[in-house]
Design a protein around this nucleic acid. Structure first.
Lengths: 275, 275
DNA sequence: CTAATAGTGTCTATTAGACAGTATGTT
DNA sequence: AACATACTGTCTAATAGACACTATTAG
């Protein structure tokens, strides 16, 4: 082992190849809320949670769907910047909510070589999407997340395609409810992205209760009914209106706008109110 | 660009050097609770939160303190396995609580080359530490975490040394209370580890309220007074005993053991009760 | 009028905060 | 007896859950 007299001298002689190196990617779960049109003029539009998937045009996993993502450029960018770059490429959006989710690093998660992926969750108000998506990118509605014992069935679909996968969710830490995810059935999604999707949705489910995260996927003006729908979709359960209104009352602000033309009593439009 | 007829063929020809590669490390914030002896026979021992730091014996940051950590071996281990390996080396402990904290990736966080670090929080019951620590590893008590406006002052000390640093904590996401950490003053801790320390303690502060995480740093038998002390230290505020007892009553189980010899009424020893 | 959703009032049950009081060891 | 902490009882305030009720539009 060599000896140096100063940090400067050490750094000058540092051999970057002495430790094995690896590649990293940033992968992004882009979540949004979509409306589903109804044929009955009285009924309100149902809300759906949607995610953006990209069809892979190259090996590995050619023709499979995956989350938008890409290799980190180690010399110039941080993982968040990398995620923002990809987000811009795919959606043309820049100032949107982006949160680090988890670093996934199974040894065999990428068949090419060792690739560690730091995943991010991005929340998007679909109304702000101005540009048409690339041909290989498509929104999928999350139409099912059903847990039966340890197996979670997830179903994603759009007009053209239906994707199903199953994940085993095992409690590995009783004190803090940490789960391990294992992919049990999956033939349309690349890499370990089924896990990332489920982990991201779980994160949202948690955070919606104790933060204002939901407003990142709401338009500027919304009704309390719409807001409640979004809560119900993310939480996967029905809520009682009076209790819901009490709880969110200090997070929203009434406006003088109304939403009319709906075949029933019009509703007041609200805005997000920062605390 | 080359074309392949199958994934197999593609992988056979894959050139791992086509994307720039980088190094990764796993760094671990090892937290524990220590007793501080009192001279008054009536008074109970005060509790302290402690963290394990290692003195760097080589460049860079020679002679500075840092969190136990080390380079990931890309071919053979996951980041968690890497953390466990380091944990075993430093403490000789294996089956302990370990949770991924955050992936830190500032461009200049390591002066040698681009190194991305995934940090972990480990919780340890000090009573289970059987082996003597290495000469370069020392426990430091967290004696101060004071927030004044955006500046957080942290003080770590043991019999021999006192370490202080200041971090600017800026709210960057109002909807979810996400903060950015910037090191303002620090001359004894290596890398960006002051940030990791604060982020880890913040994580604990959060999780103690809605999980049973605290029991990972408690001995098998403890009094409710001791448990309350630990809550108070982590939360940084006093709690009222009746309310505290109500809240934790369904997480603990009375035993027939008592803690006597303390100059005041003896207290019943409790055990953690899994839900 | 009817269907459908918007929005409010109120009763009850549960949980959290505060404080006073009693209990019981060691010296 | 005095100190220090252990532990409990109870009053009050705040919050959550449930349900019934009224309001208002398009067709």
């Amino acid at each position: 082992m060599e000896l140096y007299n100063s940090e400067e001298e050490f750094l000058k002689n540092y051999d970057v190849t002495q430790f094995d190196r690896l590649s990293m990617t940033a992968d992004i779960l882009i979540l949004s809320i979509s409306d589903e049109e109804t044929n009955n003029y009285r009924k309100t539009n149902k809300k759906k949670m949607s995610i953006l998937l990209v069809k892979r045009e190259e090996y590995p996993y050619k023709d499979k769907w995956c989350l938008p993502g890409g290799f980190l450029i180690p010399k110039t960018e941080t993982l968040k910047q990398c995620a923002q770059r990809i987000l811009k490429t795919e959606t043309n959006l820049t100032q949107i909510y982006l949160e680090q989710l988890y670093t996934f690093d199974d040894l065999d998660r990428d068949p090419r070589t060792r690739v560690v992926s730091t995943s991010y969750v991005a929340l998007v108000d679909k109304n702000k999407l101005t540009r048409k998506l690339h041909d290989n990118a498509k929104w999928f509605d999350v139409t099912q997340i059903a847990k039966e014992n340890e197996i979670v069935k997830v179903c994603l679909e759009n007009e053209e395609e239906k994707i199903k996968f199953k994940i085993k969710k095992e409690l590995i830490e009783k004190t803090t409810n940490q789960y391990s995810y294992t992919i049990m059935e999956n033939n349309k999604i690349a890499f370990d992205h089924p896990k990332v999707i489920l982990a991201g949705i779980d994160r949202m489910k948690n955070k919606i209760n104790y933060t204002d995260i939901v407003f990142n996927m709401m338009p500027e003006y919304f009704t309390l009914g719409e807001l409640q729908d979004v809560y119900e979709i993310i939480l996967g359960k029905k809520l009682l209106a009076p209790a819901f209104r009490r709880i969110i009352s200090n997070k929203v602000e009434k406006t003088d706008k109304m939403l009319t033309g709906k075949g029933h009593r019009p509703s007041v439009l609200y805005k997000y109110k920062e605390k």
